[in-house]
Computed example of a mutant assay.
Amino acid sequence: MIDIALMGIGKIALDQHVPAIAASPDFTLAATVSRHGSVPGAPGFTDIDSLLAAHDGIRVLSLCLPPVPRFDAAARAIRAGRHVMLEKPPGATLAECHALRRLAEAHRVCLFATWHSREADKVAAAKTWLADKRLRSLRVTWKEDVRRWHPGQDWIWEPGGMGVFDPGINALSIVTEILAHDIHLTSATLDVPENRQTPIGAELAFYHPEGAEVSAVFEWRQEGDQTWEIVAETDAGTLKLSDGGARLTVDGAAAPALDDDNPLSGEYPRLYAKMARLLARGGIDMDLRPMVHVSDALALGHRRRVAPFVE
C-alpha cells in the first residue's frame, strides 16, 4: 500500500476521491491538506509545506484544489520529490501545465493530469467502435444546473475558474479520447453574465481533418433533466454516449449496462488504479488537448453579455 495525501478537501474530494482511495488496493490516505476541510482518521495539515516537512514517507499527493492555486502546490510537491496527481483541469493556464511537466521531468517524479470522464463505463467501447468508421458529424450537448453541482463555489466565476468549461472540459476530454483524428476550434460564442468573469454558456465549432461537422453546446442554466450527451454520425451508423459516458447506444441498440445504481462510480477508482500503474513504470501522463480547446475558446470566443447570475 502506498501512502497518499489529499490536498483540497471540498465537494469533489469528499464525494469522489476519499471513497476511491478508501476502496483502492494500492493507496492509503495518510494525510490531508486543507484550510477548512478534514477526513476522519487522516491527520490534517493547513498548508503543504507543513505536510512535506512532517511526512517523508508520503510519496504521492493528489491535488483537488481549484485551478488557480494548484500550480504552486504542485510545484512545491515536485521540488520535494513527491509524485503528483492533478484533478481536472490540470491548471489554470497551458503555460503552467507545461512548466509542471518540465519540473517533473527534471526531478524524475510521476505527474498525472487526470480526466475522470474518460474513465466512464462506455468511453473505451465508444473509442473502439469509432476507430474504423468515417465520421460525418459529432455533436456534444452538455447541459446542467450550476446551482445543483457547484453550490457556493465562487472561484468558478473568477478568472481561471473556467465557468461552464469546468464541466464542459469533461466532454472535451471524452471527445479527444474517442476520435481517431485530432480536431481544433474554429469559432465560439460565450454567454457571460453581466456580474461574472467566466461564461455560463458556450457554443463551439471545430475543424475535422476529414470534413466532419463537429460542434458542442455547453450550458449551466439547465433546469430539470440534466444532459451529458455525445452523438457521432458515421458511415456505419450513429453512436450515442449519454449520462456522461456511462451509457452507449449504436443505432438505438444499447450496450449492456453495469449492475450499478451509479454507473459513473468507477471513474475515480480507475484513475487511482492508473496512478498506481504510472508509479510502477515511471513517467508522465499529461494530455493537454482538452485544455487546449478551452484555451482556444476563451481566446477566439465572441462574448455575449447575458443576465446576471445570482445563486
Rank of each mutant, 00 (worst) to 15 (best):
R196N: 13
T198H: 07
T198N: 12
P199D: 10
G201M: 03
A202D: 12
E203T: 14
E203D: 13
A205S: 11
F206W: 11
Y207W: 10
Y207L: 10
H208N: 08
P209Y: 09
G211H: 09
A212V: 13
S215N: 12
A216C: 11
A216F: 12
A216P: 03
V217L: 15
V217Y: 13
F218Q: 11
F218R: 14
E219W: 12
E219K: 14
W220I: 06
R221M: 08
Q222I: 15
Q222A: 12
G224E: 06
G224R: 03
D225C: 02
D225P: 04
D225Q: 08
D225H: 10
T227M: 15
W228E: 15
W228D: 10
I230Y: 11
V231D: 07
T234Q: 00
G237P: 13
G237E: 11
T238D: 06
T238P: 02
L239C: 05
L239H: 01
K240H: 04
K240S: 14
L241N: 00
S242F: 01
G244M: 07
G244R: 04
G244K: 07
G245H: 03
A246I: 13
R247D: 03
L248C: 06
T249G: 08
V250S: 02
V250E: 02
G252A: 10
A255Y: 09
P256N: 09
P256W: 03
P256M: 09
N262A: 05
L264P: 10
G266F: 04
E267V: 06
Y268P: 01
P269H: 09
P269S: 04
R270V: 04
Y272C: 05
A273T: 01
K274R: 12
L279F: 00
A280T: 06
R281K: 07
G283L: 05
I284E: 00
M286Y: 13
D287P: 12
D287H: 09
L288Y: 08
